[in-house]
């Protein structure tokens, strides 16, 4: 085999490998482009039926109850709510009032049975003292509005 042909084969092989890798990734990308659905989207029926999907939103304050390893909580996007049940270990950042993304299926009664729970945190980084100050200020602003 001439070296020119060998090179051509090498290049074609390389391009083919790259193409397959790109296709696999793009495929995963497309089906997961909507990484999670909000409770409002679920209420409108936009989430897939009889298929696992992810729900995302905030853990409603005061909604978390634990029963051994099983946790019950409500995911809210402030306009709609979805009750979630999950058995397993919750991540460190899972807290009431914080962001959450859970994978699982929606039951007929509207309850979401999660097989995996991930915590979604925001892009704010500050020391605890500053965080307290911000929380206090927000509380004050809320009471003023009411």
């Amino acid at each position: 085999m001439k070296s020119r042909h060998k090179r051509l084969l090498l290049i074609m092989g390389g391009v083919a490998v790259l193409g397959v890798a790109a296709m696999l990734v793009l495929n995963a990308f497309r089906s997961n482009l909507v990484f999670f659905y909000t409770p409002t989207q679920i209420a409108k029926g936009e989430a897939p039926n009889n298929k696992a999907f992810r729900i995302g939103g905030l853990v409603k304050a005061g909604s978390l109850t634990r029963d051994g390893l099983t946790a019950h909580f409500i995911v809210t996007d402030t306009s709609r709510e979805t009750p979630v049940i999950y058995t397993g270990i919750l991540p460190d950042l899972f807290k009431e009032g914080r962001g959450v993304v859970a994978q699982g299926k929606l039951q007929a009664q509207g309850q979401f049975v999660a097989t995996e729970v991930l915590a979604k945190h925001d892009e704010n980084y500050m020391p605890p003292e500053a965080k307290d100050a911000v929380d206090q200020a927000q509380k004050a602003a809320r009471t003023l509005k009411q």
Partner: peptide, 20 residues
């Protein structure tokens, strides 16, 4: 923090494509 090493969300997937 999240509870997963890897998820196929748009940010992580596009960064993986960059590596490829």
């Amino acid at each position: 923090m999240w509870g997963a090493w890897w998820v196929w969300d748009a940010r992580l997937t596009s960064q993986l494509i960059l590596f490829f």
